[in-house]
Design a protein around this nucleic acid. Sequence first.
DNA 1: ACGCAACGCATCCGCC
DNA 2: GGCGGATGCGTTGCGT
Lengths: 87, 87, 87, 87
Amino acid sequence: MGGPVDVSGDQLRTIVERIEHVEKEISELTEGKREIYQEAKSNGFDPKVLREIVRLRKQDQKERDEHESLLEVYLRAINGACVSKAA
Amino acid sequence: MGGPVDVSGDQLRTIVERIEHVEKEISELTEGKREIYQEAKSNGFDPKVLREIVRLRKQDQKERDEHESLLEVYLRAINGACVSKAA
Amino acid sequence: MGGPVDVSGDQLRTIVERIEHVEKEISELTEGKREIYQEAKSNGFDPKVLREIVRLRKQDQKERDEHESLLEVYLRAINGACVSKAA
Amino acid sequence: MGGPVDVSGDQLRTIVERIEHVEKEISELTEGKREIYQEAKSNGFDPKVLREIVRLRKQDQKERDEHESLLEVYLRAINGACVSKAA
DNA sequence: ACGCAACGCATCCGCC
DNA sequence: GGCGGATGCGTTGCGT
């Protein structure tokens, strides 16, 4: 224990403040999101269904990405060494 | 300080021990799972591919379930009040 | 089937896109946050401790706010509910 | 194409099923755990406190002390930030 | 040993 | 004000 810790004090403070700043921005955006849902609801849209739609679209995209990488894994497994006894 | 506290004390102890017991069982099973993977690997199976397979099967099942409940949501939305202006 | 449905369809699409947009912004900021932690770590800071600090400071701030508003309530009660800032 | 592949296929299927079985058991135990907490709650125990107790009992005393002192050092560094290179 | 990913936990918000 | 669901955090386990 000694000097280095003290030296880090300023760095530490900067880091923490940067994190806090970005977290503040995130929570503001989250708030904005909530307002969009509220507004939609007041226009007669069911928030639950809206969330479901958003969720599904996100998931579909993700699956597409995964299938791609999965394919890669399988191809490598076939070319490589999936099973030793079947070699 | 008197009886009631002691009664709660016993109950509390029982509860905590039950939880700890089930957690112990879980960690033992987790250990067993790890061993299965190890064994499979020593038999020449690529653990990564195995995990991918397990994961996919789980996901497929999940999706099936979700689609079901999703369908329900949509049907209710149609019968109910998804949009007021389009009514 | 006719106009009203299309109108709702457009509204719906707009809503969904707005939500997706704000979610994209959020995930970008989250990414930025991750990078800050990474950078800090590479400078020798323990991320876990950093997170703990951020968490504690948030909590302290919250308590401070609560305390402040409580104080305000008390002061207003004393003054007879006419002062806004305890001036 | 012939025997060996089929043999591997059977092995593979067996492995996957064994894994899925143990995972099923795990999730059932997890469910049981949840029920214990529910039951405790309905008997007037605060789940949060229960979890804390379990957590504390699990946690190694020594590690806790180390973590605590490290945190303290950091907090002092942030409040202080006084020295530049050697205390 | 590090980084990534999945799981479970704690918190928060909306609903009842 | 309690409850359930959704979101974000933290932890643990896995692969590299």
